[in-house]
Design a binder for these strands. Sequence first.
DNA 1: GTGCTTGTTGCACGAACGTATAACGAGGTG
DNA 2: CACCTCGTTATACGTTCGTGCAACAAGCAC
Lengths: 191, 191
Amino acid sequence: MSKRASPDDRRRDLIAATVRVLAERGAAGASVRTIAAAAGVSPGLVTHHFGGVDRLVAASYDHIAAQVAAALETAVAGAGPAPRARLGAYVAANFTAPIADPALLATWLALWSLARGDAAMLARHEQHYAAFRARLEDLLGACGVAAERLRLTAIGVTALVDGLWLELCLSPDSFSADEARRIAADYLAGL
Amino acid sequence: MSKRASPDDRRRDLIAATVRVLAERGAAGASVRTIAAAAGVSPGLVTHHFGGVDRLVAASYDHIAAQVAAALETAVAGAGPAPRARLGAYVAANFTAPIADPALLATWLALWSLARGDAAMLARHEQHYAAFRARLEDLLGACGVAAERLRLTAIGVTALVDGLWLELCLSPDSFSADEARRIAADYLAGL
DNA sequence: GTGCTTGTTGCACGAACGTATAACGAGGTG
DNA sequence: CACCTCGTTATACGTTCGTGCAACAAGCAC
């Protein structure tokens, strides 16, 4: 019983509902009916606007990846010209709103599990992580990290950030986002 | 069409089949019928021996967690008495067979996604990670890490190891297990 | 050999899944 | 106002899910 909306708005609503459902009920609960109910529309709309639930999930992945990348870029832009500050801001932003939001972390984890076994989703993941690492290598290079150590260093930073994300999502009582930010900062300081 | 077997053997077979299916088809493919087919038995046996697929998955989680903990403990025991060597062995073992096995990493990732939304599975995860961190704090303390920095340091090491695991599983072409071991060793050396 | 225990199977059942499709109705254009 | 476009709903269909249940058969006690 929802009002008529423009295709763009409706697509946005459905993606937002997918993200919400993924965060609250995990990958197993991301059915067409559940998502449609969360968006307040009928299940048929998913097929109508996306052609299938798989493509809706893929669109949700793209949306979140773009949102995360934009938040990181905003943090870098606001850090001023100093290379170390820009690198620190890029990493610390991963533990600051809106990225540090536990619901977003839960959504990302559910998408990871859905990515396994789906070639298109795996390619999306690969592309997003390659972009993340490339940006990291860029910022690390500006801080004077030797070119031959650039790749491994970027992988290590990415892994640390991902691991802190994961534990923050699965065991939110073990430590705080502030502590995660501090662990990452110490790691960068040690390079 | 399987021969009669003892309950213990059959339970072991079913757990092994669950781990295999989880690794090959992800969390979405872990249905009773798929698991039973992988074990070469009828679907009804899952209910008969475990009382439901949820408890079979939980038992698989326990089995893997115990297997990983045992492999880590073996590595520590084989490292001699020096505290630094013991710590290094404990961390490096995470990227050595049998833990470094990509299939095991895939299984673990699938179990993580299944753990979300299930209170019993979340409790299992919490318990396993608490044990992992406690052992890590023990080894770090023996190396002279200050008591007040122990908790945060252990969280950071755990996060780095988990992140390297994850990326190794999702993007196996990005870097090798050897490189992961080296990144972790460098991190420990910087403490 | 006879009978009992119990591992094992095959089937059936209800529920939930994804999606195709026809009918409905709101909103813009003539 | 009439008409058409298209977003939306409701329904239906086939598949797959988890699991309960009755029947079968293998191994053991006697």
